[in-house]
Structure formats: C-alpha cells, structure tokens
Write a protein that binds this DNA or RNA. Sequence first.
DNA 1: CGGGCGGAGTGAAACGTTTCATACCGCCTG
DNA 2: CAGGCGGTATGAAACGTTTCACTCCGCCCG
Lengths: 334, 334
Amino acid sequence: MQAGVSVGTVSNVLNRPDVVSPPTRERVQAAIARLGFVRNESARHLRAGRSRTIGLVVLDIANPFFTDVARGVEDVANPAGLAVILCNSDDRPAKEAAHLDVLAEQRVQGVLVTPTAELSRNLQALRDRGTPVVLLDRRAPTPDQCAVAVDDVLGGRLAADHLLERGHRRIAFIGGSSGLPQVQERHAGVAAAVRDGTGSEESLLVLSPATLTVAGGREAAAQIIGMPAGRRPTAAVCANDLMALGVLQEMVRHGVRVPDEFAIVGYDDIDFAAAAAVPLTSVRKPRQELGRRAAELLLDEAGNGEHQHQQPVFEPVLVVRESSMVRRSRTVAS
Amino acid sequence: MQAGVSVGTVSNVLNRPDVVSPPTRERVQAAIARLGFVRNESARHLRAGRSRTIGLVVLDIANPFFTDVARGVEDVANPAGLAVILCNSDDRPAKEAAHLDVLAEQRVQGVLVTPTAELSRNLQALRDRGTPVVLLDRRAPTPDQCAVAVDDVLGGRLAADHLLERGHRRIAFIGGSSGLPQVQERHAGVAAAVRDGTGSEESLLVLSPATLTVAGGREAAAQIIGMPAGRRPTAAVCANDLMALGVLQEMVRHGVRVPDEFAIVGYDDIDFAAAAAVPLTSVRKPRQELGRRAAELLLDEAGNGEHQHQQPVFEPVLVVRESSMVRRSRTVAS
DNA sequence: CGGGCGGAGTGAAACGTTTCATACCGCCTG
DNA sequence: CAGGCGGTATGAAACGTTTCACTCCGCCCG
C-alpha cells in the first residue's frame, strides 16, 4: 500500500505497534492519516469470531430507570472497548425476540436483558449458542446463569411498612398486569406487610392499569377517586415511579391534596421522583450500579474461562419525601 | 453441510428462497432449525461492504426528549431491517468523537447526530468517507447535507410573547452556556420578542446554569429567588423542560406559588411536562416525528442514488398549561 | 432425434482483516 | 569465518458469507 509495506505490517502497527520499527511505524501512521483509513470492524470480527459489542435489551426506553441502568452499563463497557447496542422491547415479547435475533446475528459478545414476563425461547437459544446472557433487574430461574436483581419483596415491604407506620390502614398497590416477576414480588412484599400490620389483607386494594406508565398511574388514580370515601384507600404503593407520578398528577388535578389526603410511594427513585413538585417518596434501587454490575458479570463471563455465575441481589432503600409525609400543620390540627 | 447441499444453496434459501426448489428448501430449513444455525452478520457485511446498522448519537440519553426521538428513529429503521446503535455523548466532544469513530469502524450505513456545539472533525471525516450523516435538531451549516431542525427562534418568540401577553414585564431566559445553537436561537427569539414587546431588552434576565438539566434549573431558580423583589423576574422561559422542572421544584420548595407568583415556560414538551404537579406550559417540538423524518432522510441518502439533500424545519407550537396561567381567582382579586 | 432452453444447484472468488510460519538481514559469538 | 540469533517484515491462509459464471439435466419443440 501507500507506505510501501504489506497489509500484515499495517495490522501490526494498529494492534502491536511495539513490534514494528519506529521508522516503519511512522510511515504507516502517516499513510493512515493521509488516506483517512478506518479499519473495518466486520472483517476484523469475522476473523476474530466475535465482535466488540454487547447488547442491552430493556423494557421501556422511555422510563428513566432504564436510561440510568444503560448509563451504568456504558460506564463499564466503553472503557473495555465495547460498544453497546441498546434495544427497546416495549415489554412486547415479539419485539424482544426480534432484537435478540439481530444481536445473535451480530455475534455480540453477550447480552444484558430485562426480559418480558416469560423467558423467551430466543433467549435460551442465545445461551445454547454459547453467548453469555445476564438478566438485569430480574432473578435467574436457575443457578446456571448470571442475574442482577433487587430484593423487590423487601422493597414492597419497606414501602408498605412506612405507610402503615404513618397510620394508613387502607392501602392500594398499583401495578400493571403484565405478569412481570418484579411487579409480583413488590406486590407480595406489600401484601405481606399489610397482613402483618393489620391482621388481614382486606385493607389492600390491588389495581392493575394497562401499562406501567404515567398514563397507567392516572388511570388507577381516577379509579381510586371514583370510590366511595369510606372504602377509598388513603395511600398507594406504585410499582414504579412513572405510575406514581401519574397518580400524583391525577390527584392534584382533582384537588386531592398529597400527602394530606392521599399518600404516595413510588418505586425506583428516578430523578424525576425527587424533582416532582410534591417530591415523591420512593423505593430506591441502585440504578447505575445495577447496570455496572451486570456489565461486569457479562464481561467476566465473556472473557474469563473460570467464570463463576453470580446472582447478586441488591437491597433497596426507602427514601422518604414529601409525598408520604403528614405535614406538621396537619398533624397538629388533627 | 448437513442437508447435503452447498453453502451457495444455503445462502439462496436464506436470501432468495424462490430460486430454490421446495424440497431442497425444506431440507435446508430443517437443517438450519436443527443446528440452530444463525447467519454471521460480520461476514455478510464484509462481503456486502456495508452493514445493516445506523448510528444515533444524542446529547443526553437521560433527557426524555431524546428517548422520544430515538423511538421515532426506531420506528423507521427497524422495519427497514436496520439496527440502531444508540450512543450518548453527554454533550462532551470527546465522547462524541469516540462514538463516531466506533460507528465508522462498524461501517454503519449512516449516522444521525445531535452534535455538540462545534461540528467535530470526526463528523466531517465520516462524511468524507461517504457515510451519510443527518443532523438532528440542528440546522445544517451548508446545503450539502441533510438536517432536521426546529425553528427555535420562533419557539423562543412564542414562549416570550405568551408571557408578555399575560402581563409579565421582567422575564428570565434560563439556558446553559454550552454554546449549543439550539439554545442560542431560543434565546434570540425570546430576546427579540421582549424587545418588540417592551421596547427594550433590559427587562430580560439571562441565566446560564452549568448544565441543561433539572439540577441546572434548580440552580437558576435559586439565583432568582435570591434577587431583591423589585428586580426579580416574574416569569421564565427555560431552554428545555428538564430545567423548567428544576425551576418549578425549587420555586415550590421555597413557597413561591406557580404560576401565581412566578410563571414558567419550558421547551420540548416532554411527557413529564404535562405530568408535573403544576403542569408545565411548554414549546412543543414534534419529537418522534423529528426522529422519524431524520431516519427517512438517512435511509434515502444511503439507498437512493438520486438523493436530494433536504433540511426540513419544523414549526414548534406553544402548549399552554397551568404553569403560566394566571388563575381565575387571582385575576379577579388583583 | 437433436438442439436449445430453463430450472436447479455447484464451486470458487472476493470482501478486509488477523495470525502465523517463514524469510531476510545484520551482528554477535565462538 | 561460520553459525546462530534477534529484530523486522512478508505472504498466505482463514474467517463465513454473497455472487456469479458455470454445469447438469430433463424437456419441449422443430
């Protein structure tokens, strides 16, 4: 080529510059700069047998929880020289499957995925082909794979206990009906706490709006507002912060004062929770850390022969803010 | 291989099934299913010379505006069989450059990018190599490339005119100091409107918090609250909704009633704007449409020999909500 | 009956790297 | 002076597709 050397030498300049003599190296580098040469990753990876990318499949790219997770993943992957292909399944198995197929064809080094309710066949196929898969924000069904999760039963408990302590006796759990285990666990935690705290589960109202979004939250809040005052719950635990924000908005819109007349606890503790005009009490998950840890496990599984599968479970923490606090003036008055 | 046919035939089964006889086709498909064969994209694209991916580089993945744009891009790219590699530059030229380099090595079919303040050398290098580049939410400096933008001068004007009509005479423009043209244009629009409406620009206060985020908004609001009442503005136009939410939060925290004592207008009209407890007036941009249009232009440029560069400019619309409405009771009282 | 045609499948080249065995060269050492 | 060695550079194979020219074969038609 232009520098009068063989392609093998160019490859060496790029990958093991120390093995090339300084004059040659400089000549080649000059030629590269002059020609605007950019190495072709496809060829590189065809030869190497694996690419330098990983896949990340999330349930809802519009939920800031997942963008924070994605950031954590990038924090680990990029320094390791890996590009992240971010895919959005929209909680739809078909979209998830399509994305997984594309990732398989790309021969990604591994996949991080928050799967839809059922673990799809494509996911298993990916693993069968030897591609490392780490479940994100989801427990592994078996010990033969990595998974990074949060103790959502505990999270649900924390949220409900907090409300019970504040004197609430009629509590709603607002979660979608998609069958996501995360949501089911949160529900289980809330239910257990309510049972322990009140002696029965009858004081727990379970609402399942269509989606785990702001709109879903509004829908549930409207239902609650429509209930006769005597049976109406005085507080809600929401399956995520988006829904909690929706509940908050709808309550405010109908003149229901939060937290005085209705207390709200969210889940995830996204930044918007603290930024809401009535700052939201929320169950905090280590969002970036979740992503980081998952990426680390993936890299280890992809690169380390003696990889040991791990299934760390993070403990959530309740962050109390105004949306569940009885205001001083009110406390005094009542 | 297993089905007793040549690789060429397998390729035909995959890409032009009509050219293969039904019995052979079925035999091959059966073998594919049995072996879990997955085609190797790297090899495919090495041969084809281009990959079936496009790159999308955004300024802030945590800003829902960009996730909505990304969704629009996916809506167009995925049906066309293209995977989207989503990259986050964090408004940092170095990160942007690194991402662009990776995309170049991946031989993406094209790149959609909301660039940082300066158009980087890497971006030009990409174009020089013949990779289509479409600017997103940014005007093109020259007519030889595609760009999808919004008339931000108009947007700034709409926001400011609205506040002037409501009687506000001391207005703040809250925008970061990053030098982003989008922000500068919004500022220009606001300044022009204020000049036209009040006869001078002195009634416009310009604040430049460090970042275009919720935290930046809070920072600016704190500054405003610290001003002597006589000089303090009574309303603000924010360069984006995240900042507007920050302003709102800080005002509420300090007992400043919104909109009665302080009116706020945001920009972008992200979903959280409407969902805020005091719903935000905001300048709406067609977020998904922006992404969709940009992706369409990119596909055309990548696939169509007679591609004509286009630079559509969308018109923003003011969406009035509570954060800038003088309440009836208040109007009557004053 | 022979020529030609069309459908079906084959085989090899090509894509741009990396890798590895090999060649070359000058120098040191025995 | 011969042998060997270390430091450099080379050339070719290999990665897994796609593509295209080609073969093969059966059939139709003249």
